[in-house]
Simulated assay, not measured.
Amino acid sequence: MSDAAAVSVLDDLGEEGEELDALVTGLSAEGWALPTPAERWTVAHQIAHLAWTDEVALLSVTDPDAFAGEVETAMTDPHSFVDRAAEELVGALEPDALHARWRDGRRRLQEAMRAATPGSRFPWYGPPMKVASMASARLMETWAHGQDVADALGVTRAPSGRLRHVARIGVRARDYAYLVRGMKAPEEEFRVELTGPDGELIAYGPEGAPQRVTGPLYDFCLLVTQRAHRDDLAVRAVGADAERWLDIAQAFAGPAGPGRPARKDR
């Protein structure tokens, strides 16, 4: 992405954070303790996870050597270090302090990414990322965990055009979803056609590709962040390979997630 694109993603990241911030501002202690769809995670755990991830992202941007130490620690417990980090923050901080820490971390990460030298690459738990990629990844996580918070609070959020960043990661992570499951990814590209909240078409891949995925942008983002079961979404596939991908798609790094069960009221 160009420098202008990086600024655009950073602006969108800021807006995504503010939208979630508005959901948790003024919550009672009981509200922070509400269970979310993520097993064993409350609203507080969701915000703690975002606070922790913003802080390690800030280390990546400002102190790569210190970040390398975080990676070494994570590799000693690769399947539970994320849960442990969230649990430690929830145990250490009252909701108001946790909220303030998340806000401060978001601000400092924004400032650091905006000040970064154009073209810089920052280490991560997967491949190194440029500013635009780092900001897109933070937006994806903020939106996905924000969805869990919204579900816990019984709030329906209106989809925004910012979801195009989430969809892009989901499409680009197609082969990774196969890799983490020990499967070989298809060699040919898929065509992905998504309808945005204002009716605009958002498309990836060659127009004539025989393997195709179509549906609402919002539903596709729920799918690739594993916030809803495929059976509950209006995402459709043409072709056996595309069908298989929709069963395993994930936009996030790390082990294959368990996904969410289908709704019982279907």
Results as ranks from 00 to 15, higher is better:
L98E: 04
G161M: 09
L27I: 11
F190E: 04
E94F: 04
P64Q: 07
V180W: 02
E70W: 03
Q46N: 15
Q147W: 06
H45Y: 04
V131W: 00
L222W: 06
Q250E: 11
A150G: 11
L109H: 04
R191C: 14
E188F: 03
G215W: 01
A48L: 08
D83R: 13
I169G: 01
R181S: 09
E243N: 14
A173R: 14
Q250I: 09
R138E: 02
P128W: 00
P127N: 05
W102M: 11
L194G: 08
R263T: 10
A51T: 12
R260T: 13
D151W: 00
P127D: 07
F81Q: 00
E16M: 05
A86V: 12
L201K: 13
A100S: 14
S136W: 00
D21Q: 12
M1V: 11
I248H: 02
K184N: 11
D77M: 13
R40W: 06
L58Y: 00
G161D: 14
D148F: 02
A253H: 06
L20W: 01
A240N: 10
P128A: 13
A228M: 11
E18Q: 15
V149L: 08
H165S: 09
R266Y: 08
P37K: 09
D198Q: 14
D12L: 00
M113H: 01
R230D: 01
A150D: 08
T62H: 06
Y176G: 03
R236W: 01
E200L: 08
V149C: 08
L93G: 03
A158L: 08
V171S: 02
E70S: 11
R103D: 11
A262Y: 04
I169L: 15
G205N: 06
V7D: 13
D265F: 10
L93S: 09
W102T: 02
M140L: 15
S120E: 07
R244I: 04
E19T: 15
P95Y: 00
D12M: 02
L98R: 04
R260G: 06
E39R: 12
D219M: 11
L59N: 03
A112S: 12
A256L: 08
V155T: 14
A240W: 04
H49Y: 09
A5M: 05
D96H: 11
A152T: 09
P78N: 09
P210Y: 10
M75D: 12
M129W: 03
K184C: 05
R263I: 04
